[in-house]
């Protein structure tokens, strides 16, 4: 019966979503296997759809970096903003080179750029929605074997880095996601039960 099947499907989907939300982990070490750009962008589109659905305007844009040359360029910009702002006390060139190589070996980077509105309130609301979209994206990526980490280090707010990344006036980098297929999954830390963090009116 159609009715029964509907109920069954609904229960099935709530179990599936609950598992996905609980099983997702932040991934910092990736398989070097390249990602399919089509799959990534498709899932990003669905993630955007899960948040921005009232007026249709997307307050952000993306730079997807997965070619060897693209990654080399981005990493050299990251390394030079580190050096310029002395974000590390001292980095021997050999260690710097190793660090650069390690980042380049990550299959893909996704730079998330917010297009800033004039009002502070709007900016904050957009920032919240972009974070929500990225959470949807993390879950959809996880669902097809892709793990990621949000990088929010202070270097991405430096003007020189923004300019070199091709940002225009009125734009800022929210985060750079580093991503690839995951191999090992950490156990994850048990969360504090909600009962201890809720009050009832």
């Amino acid at each position: 019966m159609a009715g029964q099947r509907d109920v069954g499907e609904k229960e099935n989907w709530s179990t599936h979503m609950s598992q996905l939300v609980r099983e997702r982990r932040t991934i910092r070490s990736f398989s070097e296997h390249p990602l399919s750009q089509e799959i990534v962008i498709d899932r990003l589109q669905a993630a955007a759809q899960s948040v921005f659905n009232e007026k249709g305007k997307l307050p952000c844009r993306f730079v997807y970096i997965a070619s060897r040359e693209g990654k080399e360029k981005a990493v050299s910009l990251i390394m030079s903003v580190y050096a310029e702002h002395k974000l590390y006390k001292w980095l021997p060139s050999k260690v710097g080179q190793m660090m650069a190589e390690r980042i380049i070996s990550i299959p893909a980077f996704l730079v998330v750029v917010q297009e800033m509105e004039e009002s502070k309130e709007m900016c904050e609301r957009d920032y919240a929605s972009i974070c929500a979209m990225l959470q949807s994206f993390s879950l959809l990526a996880w669902d097809c074997g892709i793990g990621l980490v949000w990088n929010t280090e202070p270097y991405m707010r430096k003007q020189s880095f923004a300019t070199d990344m091709g940002l225009k006036r009125g734009e800022r980098i929210v985060t750079i996601l580093f991503m690839g297929n995951y191999e090992r999954i950490s156990k994850g830390k048990q969360r504090t039960p909600v009962m201890k963090k809720i009050s009832f009116l």
Partner: peptide, 22 residues
């Protein structure tokens, strides 16, 4: 800003989980 972002991710989880519960 990191903490605010984390709470936004949590709220999106609530949105998605609510939706599958109708």
């Amino acid at each position: 800003s990191e903490d605010f972002a984390a709470v936004c991710c949590l709220i999106q989880n609530i949105q998605l989980l609510s939706w599958v519960h109708g």
